[in-house]
Amino acid sequence: MIELVKIRKVYRTGQVVYEALKGIHMKVNPGEFIAIMGPSGSGKSTLMNLLGCLDTPTEGFYFLEGEDVAGLSFDQLSEIRNKKIGFVFQSFNLLLYSTAFENIELPMLFDGIGRRERRERVEMLLERVGLKEWADHRPTEMSGGQQQRVAIARALANDPPIILADEPTGNLDSKSGKEIMDLFTELNREGKTILMVTHDHGIAGYARRKVEILDGQISTDTPNGFGHPTSPSPESPV
């Protein structure tokens, strides 16, 4: 599904050259749930941006479902983001002046999907994240956990195979955080490939594979054998 080959990312500001990623090799199979960990400055954010097609590598290949996307233009990448990747952010990044319904609808607007189909899908997604009654509310009227669920519904709008989550529970209390992680686990079980950046080892425990980044390189890449007590993965021996 995803294959990164010798990915390097170099930033130049004047005379200063900074190498954020120093040759990353990584392969992600469909249906995986991966936690990407690492201290700040390790390059994990850069890696997430590359994986999310928000940025292009200085060197190397990025195969997304067989297509090399490393050399595509911004607008071509926009189309890939729109159809293949759903984003979930730490600070939710909902449009404050739009209702939950309109926020979820957004990716479909950019895909040119018709009005009726949009309505059907948004309603289905609202129900899926348990916010059926909140369609006409704005983010400011909702709790953090509810906002993040709207954001997840939005990420699912165009039914992308991949979900990228950047510290999805970072701004939430532990109860809401757990609810969000349960939702991710469910989505993963339904076949979504999930890549999640986190600091929190407890949260990382929901994933089935853990990739640690250090100084722009992958330092460890291990299957999450122990799993999480409340969310046993299908393959884990319970």
Binding site: G52, D75, E79, R81, N93, L95, L106, R154
Partner: peptide, 16 residues
């Protein structure tokens, strides 16, 4: 800017 960023991440093209 953030709203624009969100829209771009959601697949808006620059010309949109």
């Amino acid at each position: 800017r953030r709203e624009i960023g969100v829209k771009l991440a959601m697949g808006a093209k620059r010309r949109q």
